[in-house]
């Protein structure tokens, strides 16, 4: 565990908590893509199956359980509890265009042709594109509440910090996970345009992010 990895995990946790509390306290999921949140719940489910097969550390187990519980709780808030506020007409990204290629690629390019390993690979590939329905929704409506942009900032920052963690681990331990690193680079690239808008607009005091 290095400082980049720890800050990455904290950033990930902060992002998920921001989104959950935003929906819970405002009793509304307006502007939030339910599709992206279902994809993230699927990411955690398929990645953390090793909770049942191997123990790594208390930290590892607790974080995995927290991510799983919060992701399903968020999906519950969007699709059941505050369903009336869900903007399904703006959440029109076709997720099958992500799921089919990602599933196909995880069968072709993995470390071991076993169910748990293919599902882990699937989760890594899927995570790299799971935010696209949310970004698509913001592009379509042309705006996002600032609290939603804080969520996106921490979610993007998390994988960028993991990139630094992988550089660190490569130099200190010789650790190199090609699938995670390539996907992590792709994932971070998707956030670059958003990072630019976040710094130039939201951090300058605008109450909302509006697209030009």
């Amino acid at each position: 565990m290095n400082v980049f990895r720890l800050l990455g995990d904290v950033s990930h946790l902060v992002a998920i908590i921001i989104l959950f509390l935003k929906i819970f306290r405002s009793k509304s999921c307006a502007g939030i893509s339910g599709k992206s949140q279902v994809l993230f719940a699927l990411v955690f489910t398929t990645r953390y199956l090793d909770l049942f097969t191997s123990f790594i550390s208390i930290y590892n187990t607790v974080m995995k359980v927290v991510f799983l519980v919060l992701s399903y709780a968020t999906v519950y808030l969007i699709y059941l509890r505050f369903r009336s506020s869900y903007d399904s007409e703006s959440d029109t990204f076709r997720v099958e265009f992500l799921l089919v290629p990602v599933a196909g690629l995880s069968f072709l390019e993995n470390y071991d042709f076993t169910p748990i390993e293919i599902l882990w690979t699937f989760s890594i590939y899927l995570e790299s594109v799971a935010i696209l329905p949310q970004l698509f929704m913001i592009t379509k409506t042309g705006e996002a509440e600032s609290i939603t942009t804080h969520y996106l900032f921490f979610l993007g920052l998390y994988r960028a910090l993991y990139l630094a963690n992988w550089v660190w681990r490569y130099h200190t331990e010789g650790f190199f996970d090609q699938i995670a690193v390539v996907s992590g680079v792709v994932q971070t690239i998707f956030y670059c345009d958003f990072f630019y808008l976040y710094v130039t607009k939201v951090l300058k005091g605008n109450s909302k992010l509006t697209l030009p």
């Binding site: 990930h12 974080m63 470390y111 996970d177």
Partner: peptide, 10 residues
């Protein structure tokens, strides 16, 4: 082995 790569990460 490679298949254990990344499993200590989240």
């Amino acid at each position: 082995s490679d298949s254990q790569n990344g499993k200590d990460e989240l």
